[in-house]
Write a protein that binds this DNA or RNA. Structure first.
Lengths: 107, 107
DNA sequence: TCCATATTTCGACTATATTAGAAATATAAT
DNA sequence: ATTATATTTCTAATATAGTCGAAATATGGA
């Protein structure tokens, strides 16, 4: 992941409303969610949500797919992996800086 | 780490100049660096750098200590750990999303 | 074809962030 | 005391981001 992309991904997550949207999509998992469902869950106007989803999509953190009349947004887990990998490698260099093993039940 | 703090930390890193400053401090390690040294390395005006260091400090990602005539800034590794822990726990839920083990030579 | 629903785009506005020179402050050296 | 160096704070300007109603677009169903 290039530094430019890292900054874009960080910026996409560095906003309360957007972080919530992303977290909601993470919880939803591979099924994804429609903007309508997200808007209802987070009580945010459709046009505002659309703006934030676009930001997340531009950063590569969510994907969009049309399903008939609906759109389905999904968290892009690989991209999030890549972001975490970059931060782990470049922002903790030489330090004991790997909380993952301690904090994640899956490992 | 509270969501509010997570957003602040992400915002602090979500800016090219600041991410570079932070990475430079990470590379410098526990010794830290003076603003003068950082300014020279990154070729950024003193007042601009000062602004960015303050942002990083407000986010808890760097610490400041006075050493005589100089100030020494250091990366706050624990805080970075906490940020990574939050992202790992909350933004990858239930997914194979732990690149740390794969990417870090220390584990 | 016409209507209803889902969602985005547009537009105008407000708010926040970034930049960098100049002035102020802190400390050390002479 | 005075001067020099390191750094921050101030200030004013520019630039970027966020909000949301209204209008536009896309699709499915009657």
């Amino acid at each position: 992941m290039e530094e430019k992309d890292v900054v874009r991904a960080l910026a996409a997550l560095a906003q309360a409303a957007r972080l919530q949207v992303f977290r909601t999509l993470v919880v939803a998992g591979p099924e994804g969610l429609t903007p309508g469902a997200i808007a209802e869950a987070l009580e945010v106007p459709a046009s505002t949500l659309s703006f934030h989803l676009k930001e997340l999509a531009n950063a590569g953190l969510v994907t969009q797919e049309r399903e008939g009349r609906y759109l389905i947004y999904r968290a892009a887990f690989e991209r999030m992996n890549a972001l975490l990998a970059y931060l782990t490698e470049n922002c903790c260099q030489g330090q004991a800086c790997l909380p993952a093993a301690r904090n994640c039940p899956n490992c």
